[in-house]
């Protein structure tokens, strides 16, 4: 089966791309940490069983910025996101090809421990999914299993404050996390992620189950967090992408897609301002102006 060559639009205006197209393997020369992109994927393809879900994606996630992934349903935004912390490992039959780097280290190789990786690259899910345990335990659990030796109460308070939830829950830390409202639950999930001190936070449509007020609070929070964390967010809401993100990648369905077998590619990746005001790719333009999707 031969697939037609699709040009990959990978260049971003802010971050220098590696010179030339890097071969899938060996990995490009290690960039010193703190300088290059925190996360990067080169020529990444993902299969579920025999069906291709994501084709030849190249993207570099800049440090301490918010990168948004937008695009129509089924174009592989979540798949791409879940590659970065290897949550796709949990889906039977999922398989990747290409290179994903985190701080210059390859994360798809068998030597990389996905458990250790997920601690460094946290994730917030579409539907708030607090543990059916107390609020305190929700935040403390991740830190405890990762061997945190500091004062746990301090960590819980710090994380909840950081997630702008402390004032609402400080008197009921022993109550179940399930008793909170949807928006509070999602901020609890963010606090839980912060408590293990990750470097990157992946957010998979974190506001799609929330009302507008809760959404605004989470968006404020993201803006606040980006000084210390790198955030990658998948969103269906283009206004949200415009409001919160610095960089935006627009994913699209490949021409080879069929009804049952959707193949995602990156149509365009650039700074958010540029992408929304002056899209280069006609498909991006069609999508952001509401003609596709």
């Amino acid at each position: 089966m031969s697939l037609p060559e699709i040009p990959v639009v990978s260049a971003s205006s802010k971050v220098p791309a590696p010179s030339g197209v890097p071969a899938p393997s060996p990995a490009p020369a290690p960039v010193p940490p703190e300088a290059g992109p925190v996360l990067a994927a080169y020529h990444l393809s993902v299969w579920y069983g025999t069906s291709l879900a994501l084709k030849d994606v190249t993207i570099e996630i800049p440090r301490n910025q918010i990168t948004a992934l937008i695009g129509p349903s089924g174009c592989g935004k979540s798949t791409l996101l879940r590659c970065f912390n290897r949550m796709n490992d949990l889906i039977p039959g999922a398989r990747t090809e290409g290179v994903i780097l985190c701080d210059g280290k390859e994360i798809t190789s068998p030597d990389t421990d996905p458990v250790a990786l997920r601690r460094r690259i946290g994730m917030v899910f579409q539907k708030p999914n607090p543990f059916p345990k107390s609020i305190h335990e929700n935040v403390a659990w991740g830190a405890r299993i990762n061997g945190y030796r500091g004062n746990m109460d301090d960590l819980v308070e710090r994380s909840l404050r950081r997630a702008a939830l402390w004032d609402e829950v400080k008197d009921k830390l022993h109550r179940s996390g399930m008793d909170l409202s949807g928006g509070q639950q999602q901020r609890l999930c963010i606090a839980r992620t912060l408590a293990v001190e990750p470097e990157v936070i992946l957010m998979d449509e974190p506001c799609s189950a929330l009302d507008p007020i809760s959404t605004a609070r989470v968006e404020d929070l993201m803006d606040d967090l980006k000084s210390e964390y790198t955030i990658v967010i998948v969103t269906h809401n283009m206004q949200q992408a415009r409001r919160v993100s610095d960089m935006t990648a627009c994913l699209m369905l490949d021409e080879d897609s069929r009804d049952k077998n959707r193949i995602g590619v990156i149509a365009e990746f650039s700074s958010t301002d540029l992408l929304f005001t002056n899209p280069k790719d006609p498909r991006t333009e069609a999508y952001i102006t509401g003609r596709i999707g």
């Binding site: 912390n85 997920r118 601690r119 539907k127 607090p130 992620t193 293990v196």
Partner: peptide, 14 residues
């Protein structure tokens, strides 16, 4: 619910 398992795994749990 599998969301519970995912939440815990995403924190770096074995």
């Amino acid at each position: 619910p599998s969301s519970l398992r995912q939440a815990a795994l995403a924190l770096g749990a074995t």
